[in-house]
Design a protein around this nucleic acid. Structure first.
Lengths: 151, 151
DNA sequence: TACTAATACATGCAATTGCATCTAAATAGT
DNA sequence: ACTATTTAGATGCAATTGCATGTATTAGTA
């Protein structure tokens, strides 16, 4: 035996490798374009959007930090500081969580909801421009499906 | 008229949006897994790999910084400092570029080639495990093709 | 030639990230 | 109840990133 792994083939197929490279490049490229559009509109980046979005659609407009963490894939220490920044801007508030003295609620404010909505106007157009316009709708659906298998 | 953009539809289709979300998530997730494997093997991250790879396949094992920049999508100031770090580790060398006093060559060393090769052993297995094993080869090919349209 | 703009790369400084660790509070084991 | 573990979240510090700008050199233009 030439390898000590268990099931999966140890060498990636050329197609698998190409898929990975394109995944990296496409994401970097489109992300940069979308962030550029947001910045050009004087708006914060997608990190802020993601948190505000999860909060705004959560029941009661609030979540525990660890719940946001799960939904956004942000690292715990990054999220903790991101919440600091959001709080400083009045977009969210931290509240005590009575059932567990360690816990906090993070509650989105009206200002936070308004900003998320404004951001979506720009974000949605950016997605349409940088993704939708480059792929027929059926292709987008197929892409979404293939990518979902990596999740 | 309700919009000031030119050709593309201003609102993304649900499929386009889903494709974008999955693109972000899949890339984040797989990237994190691959970086974890590299770190577990005591190796540097993909940023180093990308530069070493471009250099090792370039004619004469050397490129100008701006050429690396184009090939890797690294920002100019980030690349400049990344080269500093690579140079400190003896993986590359900076040389003067005689035809243009502003320019530099970045030359990969034997040590740099060796490290890239070692990294590839781990990287290739990680791609196989985190991408190849989740997608049939035909699916990977299709994914690569769809993503290439975003590039 | 002298002057202005553009190109190639580097760097000071502030903001963000990653890592390790810390505190406080809840749970588990005895 | 008492100690050890685990969990939620925060934080000090070093490394990296982003932004703006700096330096040197070449190209363009009057």
């Amino acid at each position: 035996m030439s390898d000590n792994e268990d099931a999966p083939a140890p060498v990636p197929s050329p197609h698998g490798t190409q898929a990975w490279i394109n995944l990296m490049r496409a994401q970097q490229r489109v992300l940069a374009l979308i962030e550029r559009d947001l910045k050009a509109a004087g708006l914060p980046g997608l990190g802020w959007y993601d948190v505000l979005w999860e909060l705004s659609r959560a029941h009661g407009g609030r979540l525990r930090p660890f719940e946001i963490e799960e939904r956004t894939l942000l690292a715990q220490y990054n999220l903790s500081r991101l919440i600091d920044r959001l709080e400083r801007e009045g977009l969210v508030e931290r509240q005590v969580f009575d059932d567990d003295g360690r816990g906090r609620w993070v509650l989105i404010t009206e200002k936070g909801r308004a900003l998320r909505s404004t951001m979506w106007d720009v974000y949605a157009k950016a997605i349409a421009k940088h993704v939708g316009a480059r792929l027929p709708d059926a292709g987008a659906a197929q892409l979404a499906d293939l990518l979902s298998r990596l999740l």
